[in-house]
Design a protein around this nucleic acid. Structure first.
Lengths: 246, 246
DNA sequence: CAGCTCATGTAAACCTCGTTCACATGAGCT
DNA sequence: AGCTCATGTGAACGAGGTTTACATGAGCTG
């Protein structure tokens, strides 16, 4: 069995050359497989072909590795949310929903990152860089909420954008962690997590008085009077945001 | 140092008498302190004054202890939700909001249970009793949603109660796990988690067309025509569900 | 190019934990 | 009194986290 280690060493020499990165990648894979709780420092080292003590040259301890991954996660998260938001094109509500979907997509497609970010027990404030990355990501949601709030129909009290952002975040996180990942996904649902979240957000926005029919507005302009096609006076498609009751 | 162990043994004899219960209590305390991830079987044994091997007479392994705690958690959770719902008294919306508050209160006051139930990585289906307890608890929310759905204003499409229940659950869980517990509670918020959730639920209900002014209905009866005091035609108090924009 | 230095890796050791196994104890029944 | 079985003990194993003393070699310096 030890020829393997020898061969690896022969391949790469005494020094690895890029161990830090290799450890992060290995950890990412392991966390995706077994969750942040099941991930071990030693395994990551093994996977990178180095001794168990080597990682300590690059991370103070296991928690710091985890926290680094969480930080990267928030960075990628921010990118995905930014792309989804696309500065509110083609219209604010459509873009807003796209952000919601991007949230769930991230949670589903990057389970390792999501796990490290929200479920690993790493305190957000354990590391200033982590905290900053987390805030940048949240700010995307907040900025989107800001734009949405500015569209509040005249006559309606304008909702605080921060509150809206927190509400949306809680919905997305709630759906993701209860229904969209890992063991939780095994709960039997009448609809997909994506549909669930989309309906939730639409109903919420309607509750704030927003026209949730996309045709009713464009490019962030003040919404025009509701056109006659918009059904039931609420701007929603017939049947409600949850589709036809099959 | 060993006089302590001896004394303990002297106090309680060779047999503990109620080790299973003692272990559950010890675990509860440890989880509350350090989270389910940081909790160790050995610590629980130490705290109960027995050897590290003793717990295996009562639990197959560490996971089974955790799962037992999660189950108890769901049972207590169900009780609290049931009490809060109080069969929809004095009116459905009020009772519904009380359930939301009870959810958060439970998450805050019973961090160990909440942790074991939702954040410990214990799969809900690892144990039939656990699964059943979890479903009973969720059924309270579902039943409440059912009653609420039946109140849908005439002319509005009636929302599926199951969907409503899932939405409410996701909001409550989202707020609890992001803002109301442990490290997460350190995020700076413009309002308390309770207020945040209450506003969220009210806005959501309004989005479904429910009159969210409590005076507008009583005892689950069909809501009467909106009285003149109900402002702005939405049934909400002036300023919106989030209070005055200070 | 020889030599030095420091970042980077290794091996070995220590502690804790989860888990198992052979054995001890004593509560309750016969 | 004696049996028996549930319950607890101690020792042992393997694994992981972490530290420490030592090894290696990449890159600078003269």
């Amino acid at each position: 069995m030890s020829w393997r280690k020898e061969q690896r060493r022969a391949e790469r020499g005494y020094h690895h050359g890029n161990l830090k990165e290799a450890l992060l990648q290995a950890a990412l894979g392991l966390i995706a497989e077994k969750g942040a709780a099941g991930f071990t420092f030693a395994d990551a080292a093994r996977m990178a072909g180095v001794s168990a003590a080597a990682p300590y040259r690059h991370f103070r301890d296991r928690d710091e590795l985890l926290s680094s991954i969480a930080q990267r996660g928030f960075e990628q998260f921010e990118q995905r949310l930014t792309a989804a938001w696309d500065d509110g094109r083609p219209d604010t509500v459509t873009a807003f929903e796209r952000v919601g979907k991007a949230y769930l997509a991230f949670a589903r497609e990057e389970p390792a990152f999501y796990n490290a970010m929200f479920e690993s027990g790493v305190p957000v404030d354990s590391n200033p860089a982590l905290q900053a990355a987390s805030e940048r990501a949240f700010n995307i949601i907040r900025a989107a909420a800001e734009r949405l709030a500015a569209l509040a129909p005249p006559g309606t009290p304008r909702p605080p954008a921060m509150m809206m952002a927190l509400h949306i975040w809680s919905m997305a996180h709630g759906v993701a962690s209860l229904f969209s990942r890992g063991d939780a996904a095994r709960r039997k649902l009448p609809m997909s997590p994506d549909e669930l979240l989309e309906a939730e957000v639409l109903i919420y926005l309607r509750g704030l008085g927003f026209p949730t029919d996309r045709r009713a507005q464009a490019k962030g302009a003040e919404p025009p009077p509701v056109p006659p096609e918009a059904s039931s006076g609420s701007g929603l498609p017939p049947g409600g945001p949850w589709g036809k009751p099959k």
